[in-house]
Design a binder for these strands. Structure first.
Lengths: 234, 234
DNA sequence: CGTGTTATTGAAGTGTATCAAATTGCGTGG
DNA sequence: CCACGCAATTTGATACACTTCAATAACACG
C-alpha cells in the first residue's frame, strides 16, 4: 500500500510519467521506452465529482488514463434512466473502444469522485502503437475481457432476478471500489434495476443477516460467502 | 452475387486459400503475405447443422474462420435456457475473444446450418500476428465493435420491452441472414425472450400490417420503416 | 403414415416497475 | 453550532408485461 497522507488528491502537479504511481498498472505505460513517448504526448487534466469527461455521440480525440479517482461509463435510455456500463479506477483507461472501432462514443464518461486523468491525443496513440506492436496485443487482451464482462452482465440481465444482480453488485463494488460509499441509485444503475428495488432487497438481505446497514447509509457485508450464494438462482 | 449452382456446399475440397471465396472478407486473410502463412497453418473442417464446434468452459486451441455456413455463439443459463450471443457468417471468425483474453470459452459455438470452417492453431496465430502487427489493429477494431454491439444489446434488454427487441431481431436477421428460415425459438433466443412471446408479438405485428406470415412458417416483412419504428419505445 | 418438433392459444401467477408520499440524513450557510 | 433545504432513502399501493405451464394443432421427417 502506498502511503497517503492527504485526503485530497495526493499529487497536484504531476510533471512526469516517471513519478506517476500508476506507471506500472496502466495499459499504455508498460515499458520505459513507451513511457518516454507517452511522456512527450500526454496532458494532465482534472475533473471534479459529477463532471462529464466526454459525451456519448462525440468523436474520440484520444485516450484518457486514470491516475487517481473513479470514472463511470454510462448510457442514458431514451426515457431518461441512466445505466452504468463500466467503472474505471486508477491504472484504467477511457475512450479506447471508440478510438479503435473508429466510432463515436456510445457512452458518456462521468467522474464519480474527483479525478486526475492523463490525456494522450489520437495521433500520438497511433504512433506509439506503430512503434510498439506488443501494446496492441495487450490492449487486445484487455478489450477481450471487457467483451466477456459485457456479455456476462447481459446474460445476467436475462437469466437472473433483481436480487441476484444486486448481490453481485454489492460484492463487486465492495471488492473493487470499497472506499466509495455507493448510493442506492448508483447500485441500481450498476445492477440494472431501480433504487426502490435495491432498497427492498437490501432490507431483505439485512433480515437474512447477510449485510448490515445500521451505520448511516453505508452497507457492511457480514458474510461474503452467503451473499455469493445469493448471486445464483435458487 | 457469386454464381451458386449447387444448393449444398459449393466447394467440397477446398485446397488453397488462393481460391477461397472469403479471402478478401476475412479478418486474417487480408494481404497476400499473410495468406501464405495462413495457408501453411490452416486445416479445413466441416460441421453439420446442430453440431457443436466448441464447448463453453474449454480452452481455445486456435481460431476458426467461416468459409461457408452460419454459426451461433450461445450460452446456457443454469435453468437450461439458451441465449444467442453472436451470429457469425462467412468471412467471420470464432474463438478470437477467448484466445486473446487467455480465458476459456465462455460460450459454445453451434452450427446453425452446414458449415465449412478453416482452423488455424494458436501457435501459428501468434506467429502471424508477430509478423504482421497491422492485423492486431484490425482485430482490435473488430472486437471493439463486438463490444459496442454487446453493450447495446445489454442496454436494450434493460430499456426496451419484448416487442421492441423482437422488431429489432426481425430486421437484423432478415438483413444479415435472410436465406435462413429462423424458427420462433431462434428468434426468441436472439431477442432475449420466449417463443410464446415471439408468437404473440408476431401475430400482433401481422394485425398491424407490419409483417405477413401466411406463407407457412416464414415471415415476410411488409414495411421495414414501420417495423423500425416499433424498435423504439413509444 | 406415425413420431417428434415446432407452432399456437389460453389461463394463471409473479416479479418488478411505477407512482406517490413521508422520512431521514447530509451539507451549507447563516 | 444550529437551522435550513435538498437529495437520498424508505414504505405502501397499484399496475402490468412477461413468464410459466398446459394442452392442442400443424407441420416436417424418416
Amino acid at each position: 500500500m502506498p502511503s497517503k497522507k492527504e485526503s485530497t488528491l495526493s499529487v497536484h502537479n504531476l510533471s512526469s510519467c516517471q513519478t506517476c504511481g500508476m506507471r506500472n498498472e496502466s495499459l499504455l505505460c508498460s515499458s520505459p521506452d513507451v513511457l518516454l513517448m507517452v511522456e512527450k504526448a500526454r496532458v494532465t487534466c482534472r475533473f471534479k465529482a459529477g463532471q462529464v469527461i466526454f459525451y456519448s455521440g462525440n468523436d474520440p480525440l484520444g485516450i484518457f488514463t486514470i491516475q487517481e479517482g473513479l470514472v463511470k461509463l454510462e448510457v442514458m435510455s431514451p426515457s431518461g434512466a441512466a445505466h452504468t456500463l463500466r467503472l474505471v479506477g486508477p491504472g484504467g483507461a477511457l475512450g479506447y473502444r471508440s478510438l479503435f472501432a473508429q466510432e463515436p462514443y456510445h457512452a458518456s464518461a462521468v467522474a464519480v469522485e474527483d479525478c486526475e486523468l492523463c490525456f494522450i491525443p489520437k495521433a500520438d496513440i497511433m504512433n506509439i502503437f506503430k512503434s510498439y506492436p506488443h501494446l496492441a496485443m495487450k490492449l487486445l487482451s484487455h478489450i477481450s475481457k471487457d467483451l466477456r464482462m459485457a456479455e456476462e452482465k447481459w446474460m445476467d440481465q436475462m437469466d437472473k432476478g433483481a436480487s441476484e444482480r444486486i448481490a453481485e453488485a454489492l460484492l463487486f463494488l465492495q471488492e473493487h471500489f470499497a472506499h466509495q460509499n455507493w448510493t442506492r441509485r448508483e447500485i441500481a444503475q450498476w445492477a440494472g434495476t431501480t433504487p426502490e428495488t435495491v432498497i427492498r432487497t437490501l432490507s431483505q438481505f439485512e433480515k437474512e443477516g447477510l449485510i448490515d446497514q445500521t451505520d448511516g447509509r453505508s452497507i457492511r457485508i457480514l458474510s461474503r460467502d452467503l451473499l455469493r450464494e445469493r448471486t445464483e438462482i435458487r
